[in-house]
Design a protein around this nucleic acid. Sequence first.
DNA 1: CGACAAGTTGATGTTACTCAAAAGTGGTGG
DNA 2: CCACCACTTTTGAGTAACATCAACTTGTCG
Lengths: 241, 241
Amino acid sequence: MTSSRPLLPDRALVIERLGALAPLDEEGRQALLAAAHRTRRIAAHREIIGEGSPAGEPGIVMSGWAARVRIFADGRRQILGLLLPGDVFGICRQTKPLAVTGIVALTDVALGDAPAPCGGCERLAAAYARSGALDEFFMYRQIARLGRLSARERMADLLLELRDRLAMVGLATAETFPLVMTQEMLADMLGLTSVHVNRTLQALRRDGLLELHGGTARLRNVDALARIADYRPPPTYEPHA
Amino acid sequence: MTSSRPLLPDRALVIERLGALAPLDEEGRQALLAAAHRTRRIAAHREIIGEGSPAGEPGIVMSGWAARVRIFADGRRQILGLLLPGDVFGICRQTKPLAVTGIVALTDVALGDAPAPCGGCERLAAAYARSGALDEFFMYRQIARLGRLSARERMADLLLELRDRLAMVGLATAETFPLVMTQEMLADMLGLTSVHVNRTLQALRRDGLLELHGGTARLRNVDALARIADYRPPPTYEPHA
DNA sequence: CGACAAGTTGATGTTACTCAAAAGTGGTGG
DNA sequence: CCACCACTTTTGAGTAACATCAACTTGTCG
């Protein structure tokens, strides 16, 4: 799928990704490149933005995985959505004083500032808009997953989504990708307990659908997984403009 | 809360609502008023937009309830989000050829065209932006609800959300609002079966938290319901500009 | 009145949760 | 190199929540 490019988090890749969403002008590319060199590092498990705190500047995940979360009063946690390398957050087309959700780092994360689409780089705005549309798509998918799929189906659906999203940044091949979430994080993502996630993963392995070693997932039968979850790939935006 | 205004679907109210999100200029108000008089009527249960069909013009729900849905291959259905009077859909800041989700009418619905924010009515764009931010808020809430709440908690959470959303358009008082969804629709919204929705509603009534007659819900103890669901009200936008 | 959709009930089955503990993993310092 | 620690994964047994299936009842509207 994505040739023989090395599967390493590479900040240039996030720029490529935004460029794939909407072709960038030179100013936009330069602004992103600059942002990629001034990053803020966040340790795993640390909060990036607290729910209800002032929303701060828009950012781009340059490497690592983060997640939007909602924590309930009794400690239950739900991951609302993932922020993977190349994902943009905090873009708001309005005076929005407060962050609607908290964001936490799932792994060590490097954050860059998302450059504001200025005069010379209006293509950047188009890239952000498409990134936002993809966010919306994944949010709807998360709702359907939690509402109507069984544990096995949810897991299959998420694995395929991760592959597709990571492939956009060159971090996945057709069958393999780094799966850096703990089973407890997967549980918080899928609305399950970590114990049940463990058993669900075992069942998928037993059935020859999945392999896991050393933080890498290998999908042994993508078609079967897609059938299990009635999976529909994310929309692609042809660079026809 | 909203005085003694009659609780009837009134198209003027949706304009008031958008005005409450961001104060409108006269051009914006006029454009909305015009849209409110040229409405398209959709019968209950009919599809408004099919998933993957060309996305068409942005619209405003003038009266009635609609929902974004995802239908699975085997017929399972998940309601992804509700579109209540005053809600805007299909606003896209980009070339988005296809609708990401289907939309169906839950009741008879009257749709208006959402006027494009033209030169003279840039306040309209602000209102749309805030409406979009609210959509996002409710989407996150739906994810958390489905992922981490029990049936009873989900129902309490949804009832409070409906009250708050309908109150924004003047269709709810502090304790009562029209609940036009069938139990099967509630099931598709909450990721449950209609049988279990029925039992959950009965339990809430037994506990003196809820009354239902003639399509009207009365919340007997808002605080208790809010505690059950760890409910947090939607953000309000002070008209400070 | 008849028909159809919506709501209700009971019995039973299944999925996923809870609790508890064991076993594996990796990092740190002695 | 090993002992130790914290974290993660795995396993087992029992339970609770919700689904399923199949009636039956209650509207509601022509």
